[in-house]
């Protein structure tokens, strides 16, 4: 949804960030870094206003609105990085099968262009359309790798091999990809278990301790209203869980 909102906002902040620009392209945001920064800034201003109103209604210190607003900015700033990583993982997970099937097609006389249009995996549809658009403009297929940019460097390499390589190179690339997936797997196992343990502790311990704090808080001079408790349990904790899961999901292979 944020992708569509960004395109509606004019670039009023003259910021140029090459790294951000690259990540935006990979993540499928069709905007410049300046436009993205402007959208982030505007969202932060709006969220500051919204947080101030919400905090005033539930009777919590208004100073809390500022760190919340900074958290929104940090999340939005890193959103293209997370989205780019998700898109890359999605493509890389299906790439070995596609490379092998394309290799089979190429060895049986099917042209590289036709082989690309035969890529029917849902994860590759956007990339396939990008290549089709380039060739429809009259670009010879062997020049497509020069103009194609996508979230996965492996897919880009696959396209350049398809355009200018031999079937044997394509097969070698397939084996390299399989080996790489195997190596990633070992790294993934350790990370995944740690991440899930961390998630469970965030999801269980913090709300549980908070319930104890609500019950015993009046003795220490802290008191919460029913509305505050409801908002913390129904909005703050689930939102924290959702952001955490979204981030770990993006950085672990599919």
């Amino acid at each position: 949804m944020f992708k569509n909102i960004v395109n509606l906002i004019p670039p009023f902040l003259p910021v140029s960030d090459k790294q951000l620009e690259q990540n935006l392209k990979k993540a499928g945001f069709h905007c410049s870094s300046s436009q993205y920064f402007s959208a982030c800034f505007l969202t932060c201003v709006l969220s500051l206003f919204a947080f101030t109103v919400i905090l005033a209604v539930i009777g919590v210190s208004l100073y809390l609105a500022l760190p919340l607003c900074i958290a929104v900015f940090v999340f939005l700033y890193f959103l293209p990085v997370i989205e780019a990583k998700r898109a890359q993982n999605k493509i890389d997970s299906v790439l070995p099968t596609c490379v092998y099937l394309t290799y089979l097609e190429i060895t049986h006389g099917i042209s590289a262009e036709k082989a690309v249009s035969n890529l029917d995996s849902p994860a590759l549809l956007i990339e396939r359309e990008k290549i089709k658009t380039l060739t429809k403009r009259g670009l010879p297929f062997n020049l497509v790798p020069l103009f194609y940019t996508g979230p996965s460097k492996h897919f880009s390499h696959f396209i350049s091999l398809l355009a200018n390589g031999t079937p044997a190179e394509l097969k070698k690339f397939y084996y390299d990809l399989l080996q790489k997936q195997g190596n990633d797997l070992k790294k993934y196992a350790a990370k995944a278990n740690l991440a899930s343990m961390f998630f469970i502790s965030i999801a269980a311990i913090i709300p549980a301790l908070f319930s104890a704090f609500i019950l015993l808080g009046p003795m220490l001079g802290f008191a919460f209203t029913s509305l505050q408790i409801l908002l913390i349990y129904a909005v703050v904790f689930p939102l924290t869980n959702a952001v955490f899961l979204y981030c770990i999901d993006a950085f672990l292979p599919m």
């Binding site: 709300p207 209203t225 408790i229 913390i232």
Partner: peptide, 13 residues
């Protein structure tokens, strides 16, 4: 706070 409010909030969570 009534304990009912806390239990309801936890159920929603």
């Amino acid at each position: 706070v009534s304990t009912e409010a806390i239990v309801l909030a936890i159920n929603i969570y």
